[in-house]
Computed example of a mutant assay.
Amino acid sequence: MNWTLSPATVFAASPVVPVMVIDDLAHAVPMAKALAAGGITVFEITLRTPVALDAIRAIREAMPDALVGAGTILNPQQYDDAVAAGAQFIISPGFTDKLLAHAAAHAVPLIPGVSTPSEVMTALDLGYTHLKFFPAEANGGAPALQAISAPLAQVKFCPTGGIGPKNVAAYLALKCVATVGGSWMIPADKVKAGDWAGITALSAEAVALINDLKK
């Protein structure tokens, strides 16, 4: 891999990676700034909405010191589009052989999603050692990830999907978990209402909780 940024750096940069679904472009920068005020400066903007690429551009321009990534990348074309928009890292819910090979040959790191030992082994074969465990809770949660990671100790994971304050401790107790992904600090009702102070408060609570659990 000749990536300009290592996935390990992405994982180490924040105790939690917010999964951001941005429907209104006007919300992009205020949401990111609210998260940053609470101590979260790594962002995954999912390509689930028409304004996602523009949101990446806007946040990169407004917050040059943050790490801005793109999520829900499904194919090489979306990878290229996200990189062109300024994404510094790419996250996918799963992977295809084409996507793994494409990202391995380009400059921006890919963190592919996996849910089985065979998928982890396939990713390892192409040099991927930092993976997303998704959807975490639906795939058996922390006990499943512990079992999957036991014979694959060289891999670090970012579990995502169904994680929140009530169960995050179980994931952080695992040696294989470097960070977690979640959206509990950006609830849809607060985003819709423009309650950025509320999102900052939830972000600060999330960072404090996770940092305390890591001690």
Rank of each mutant, 00 (worst) to 15 (best):
W3P: 00
W3Y: 13
T4L: 10
T9M: 09
F11Y: 14
A13H: 11
S14H: 09
P15T: 08
P15W: 11
P18K: 04
P18M: 03
V19G: 03
V19D: 04
I22Y: 08
D23H: 11
L25C: 10
A28R: 08
A28S: 13
A32I: 05
A34I: 04
L35K: 14
L35T: 07
I40W: 13
E44D: 10
L47C: 06
R48D: 09
P50Q: 11
V51M: 08
A52N: 00
L53H: 03
D54K: 14
D54I: 10
D54S: 15
R57M: 03
R60K: 15
R60M: 03
R60Q: 08
E61I: 02
E61Q: 11
M63I: 12
M63K: 05
G71I: 09
G71P: 09
L74T: 07
L74K: 08
L74M: 11
P76S: 12
Q78D: 07
Y79P: 03
D81M: 13
D81T: 00
D81I: 01
V83A: 12
A85Y: 07
Q88R: 13
P93K: 10
G94H: 07
T96K: 10
L100Y: 02
L100Q: 12
A101C: 06
H102T: 13
A103Q: 08
A103C: 14
H106V: 13
H106K: 12
H106P: 08
A107Q: 13
V108M: 10
L110Q: 05
I111N: 04
G113I: 05
T116P: 04
P117A: 04
V120P: 00
T122N: 04
A123W: 05
L124D: 06
L124G: 10
L124A: 14
D125A: 15
L126S: 13
T129V: 03
T129G: 01
K132C: 01
P135V: 05
E137W: 01
E137S: 02
A138F: 00
A138S: 08
G140H: 01
G140K: 01
A144C: 02
L145D: 05
L145Y: 07
Q146R: 15
A147H: 02
A147K: 10
S149H: 03
L152E: 01
A153G: 05
F157N: 07
K166R: 05
K166P: 03
A169E: 12
Y171I: 09
Y171R: 01
Y171N: 00
L174N: 06
K175W: 01
C176G: 04
V177N: 06
A178C: 06
T179K: 10
T179L: 03
V180L: 01
G181S: 09
G182M: 03
S183P: 07
M185R: 11
M185W: 02
I186K: 09
P187Q: 11
A188G: 06
A193F: 02
D195I: 11
D195M: 05
A197K: 15
A197H: 08
G198K: 10
G198T: 01
L202Y: 12
A206M: 12
V207L: 11
A208M: 02
L209Y: 10
I210N: 06
I210R: 14
N211T: 14
N211K: 15
L213G: 04
K214A: 08
